[in-house]
Amino acid sequence: MNTLNKTLTCTVAALTFATALYASETDVLVINEEITIPTSAPAPEGSPLDKVISGWSFRKHETQALQMDDFDNPSFIFVDKASDQWTKVEGTEGKSCASCHEDVEAFKGLRTVLPRWNEAKSELYSMENYINDCRTERMGAEPWKWSKGKMTAMTALISLQSRGLPMSVKTDGPVEPAMKLGKELYYTRVGQLDMACSNCHEDNYGVMIRADHLSQGQINGFPTYRLKNSKLNSTHARFKGCMKNIRAKPFGQGSAEFKALELYVASRGNGLSVESPAVRN
């Protein structure tokens, strides 16, 4: 452990008392005064955690409140845009999303099982991969960039159909090598600050890192609207942000590394309800 890291650990410990000022795990997430979403769940088998807790529980009440009403949640302006996009014909084949999939409600449950193995492509697939395959292979349209506005809006609309359902990605079979890689990345210290995902999100969740309340780093609310940049953020964009914070060179968005990490992190939150599109700081 280097000096920087020791200093960080001391700071974290010194600020632990401040945790009490923050929202607690006993807060209940009710959306639109009708949909109750559990924000914790028993940890999945083999987990190093006692239980899995949504990032919502680590936020202050004012931030939590923004997710408790679909009008107050600014994500929904992008969900609206994606709904318009859904029926928009693009590309050489004269098709829109709706040409094949009709109602987006058909995707209920999809968010809970992604990323997953795509047999035909012999590759781990995130939702963004499926969307771009549709665009390039079926519609004859340009693919979207992994974390740009149209993509995050569409993943928000599709993920919303699974809101409230428990995450349940498969971790065995053909995805085993990806799980192994994801786990390795999660626990490997990198960057000038020499930190791994686990240093914050497993060893120190619930305590303060400077002015931030560390969460378990669960991804059940992604894509998520962040107050920081006032837009929807993809899981990979968030990974990139974390890596930059620890002064590491981030992997590419959509890379095999980030997809493997996405799968592994998703598996650590199996059982936690989908909150997408959530609101975080």
Binding site: F71, D72, P74, I77, F78, K81, S230
Partner: peptide, 8 residues
């Protein structure tokens, strides 16, 4: 009444 517009 609530109102929101998409604007940077």
């Amino acid at each position: 009444i609530k109102a929101l517009i998409d604007h940077k």
